[in-house]
Design a protein around this nucleic acid. Structure first.
Lengths: 338, 338
DNA sequence: TTGTACGCGTTATCAT
DNA sequence: ATGATAACGCGTACAA
């Protein structure tokens, strides 16, 4: 059984292809009776319009592309939920591409979008990305694009972020208030602006409290979790004074838990830990993890909304449409004072 | 700047469209020099072939559709990782659709696939699904389809599952060995075959130990976590003898943790808990959760491999290509004997 | 080795 | 109210 097309419907009904097409799109110029006949047969034969023919003709793909580092990550999977919801509301389809934090792969993916496969793009940068020329080329082609979370500052488009500087400051402040004086900061990447902002918040908070940041207490995580745990263990051993850890991403907090356990450091008695995290069950950890939770779902949704506003109204996206949402610090036992 | 197409390249080079087309596909009938010229200009102008025109012409979309209940779920996000990897290896694109466990939405999505938008489908059923006719229609159209995890037994196609009966038996056995005599079983849905198998394993294990299963100890979870926690609390209160919980999915285990905490039941002293789960950090929970971990990534990968074998060789998928992978019981403190 | 012509399925324009 | 026709961009059979 082959896919049914307009021609077959037309033949069956002794109508022209164009009449059938119009009947199906509920055009006002078609009589009610023909409409009914056509639509009934279409339903009966399970007719589905060929989306590629339609895309070719209309120069619209009804598809958006989502480019993210990983999907097995609470933040991104929640964001996808938000994106998918808005896409469905607009009868759009969602193509997912994973960069695995590899700039080269990201470039390949984005380059492909010059083909017209998607009407718009939602992207969160690979940690490695330093050269943004692949994105610029898309801008020249006027393909609307919204960045979320791991944004590219330089681009004249909308970006959905959270108040990373403030959160970084607040997290550090929280540890200081809890009595920590030697706070390590674990970051993801040297290149991401959100990482830089969180770092700057950390540095400023320390200095505001009369403390001199110690570069030895900064650790760049890798993509390998075992390696990260080892690095953190070494950090803790080489700097026994460390009494607080501020992790920029969830996995680094988890590696810190394992490192502490391995070294016999108690949380929060010996080391207090706070982390950016969208772990739903932070409360069920041992000990419960104090988190800065980003509104991941809302970020995905807002990014998608802005994108669709542009696609549907055929207007360029302006940087002024950017939004900065608020993260929430949720205090739990991992930073409790004894 | 408009998307570049073959016509423009042809004009620029004083060649015909077909020559350019052939040069780009590295056809043997084109001279090396023209090929070089064409390819250079194509690169220079950032030419990307229009995938929709190509799909229309070739009747191939180079796209697969993935239909799953949720993405914010460790099992499914890991599976997507596996799927995406295989898709990328084959230069295919991945469309993601979420059913949110709603059979109606699933039917709508699947129905749309009759349009030819995808060359193949990977699906994991919505918990609610009872009527499978939407899938049958696709089979009539010979669109290759592989089910994974939440499979539909009735279909003559490949299914990737885990040894759910054995795991259900083993999980129950594990609790029995730990001394439990009143074991509750929390399931997702009455309709999913994997749920039925796990349940059967549970029932058989009980009976093999001379215990009579008590229907009052079976609880069907909902899609609402708070509601689930309430239900579990009621279950525990109405059946104070319960000393073991076997959860069929991770969220029900987490709700059980919260329920126990709320009621002051200690884990594992008062109640031991075991659950199907792909939580990476089960070990960091309080107490660490004994899990049956499914090879989610591998399942996605294998399902995708089978699908691509069919797509690329243009052969139907046979039920004999089905695979049953092994889950692993990882014993942790939540089922420890005191 | 290259060019011409057609068709994939749909939609939009122009006629009747 | 309906039909004929062209075009979207690409790939291929056939011609030259």
């Amino acid at each position: 059984m082959n896919p049914v097309n307009l021609k077959q419907l037309a033949q069956e009904l002794n109508l022209s292809v164009s009449t059938v097409s119009r009947a199906l799109s509920d055009s006002y110029e078609i009589s009610a009776t023909t409409k009914a006949k056509v639509q009934q047969l279409a339903r009966q034969l399970g007719y589905e319009p060929n989306p590629y023919a339609s895309s070719l003709r209309r120069q619209k793909s009804k598809t958006i592309g989502v480019v993210i580092p990983e999907v097995a990550n609470n933040f991104f999977s929640l964001a996808i939920n938000g994106i998918e919801e808005v896409a469905r509301e607009n009868n759009y389809h969602v193509l997912i591409y994973l960069t695995h934090d590899d700039a080269q792969q990201e470039a390949t993916i984005v380059q492909h979008f010059a083909s017209g496969r998607v009407d718009g793009i939602l992207a969160s940068l690979a940690g490695e990305t330093q050269d943004f020329s692949h994105f610029s080329k898309l801008q020249e082609r006027h393909i609307p694009m919204v960045f979320f979370d791991r944004v590219c500052e330089e681009f004249a488009t909308a970006k959905i972020t959270t108040d990373d500087y403030r959160s970084g400051y607040q997290a550090t402040q929280h540890l200081l208030d809890a009595g920590c004086r030697h706070i390590a900061h674990l970051l993801i990447s040297d290149h991401l602006s959100i990482g830089q902002k969180r770092l700057q918040g950390y540095l400023d908070a320390l200095q505001a409290h009369g403390l001199t940041p110690d570069p030895a207490l900064l650790l760049r995580g890798t993509s390998n979790k075992d390696r990260n745990q080892t690095l953190i263990q070494e950090l803790l051993q080489q700097n026994p004074a460390i009494d607080g850890i501020f992790a920029s991403v969830e996995t680094l907090a988890m590696s810190s838990y394992l490192a502490c356990r391995h070294l016999g450091r108690r949380i929060p008695e010996d080391v207090k830990i706070i982390s950016f995290s969208n772990l739903e069950i932070a409360d069920l950890l041992d000990p419960p993890l104090t988190t800065i939770a980003q509104p991941a779902y809302e970020m995905g949704r807002e990014a998608a909304r802005i994108l669709f506003k542009s696609i549907l109204k055929n207007r360029p996206i302006l940087p002024t449409q950017s939004q900065e949402l608020k993260s929430t610090l949720i205090q739990r036992k991992s930073t409790a004072t004894t």
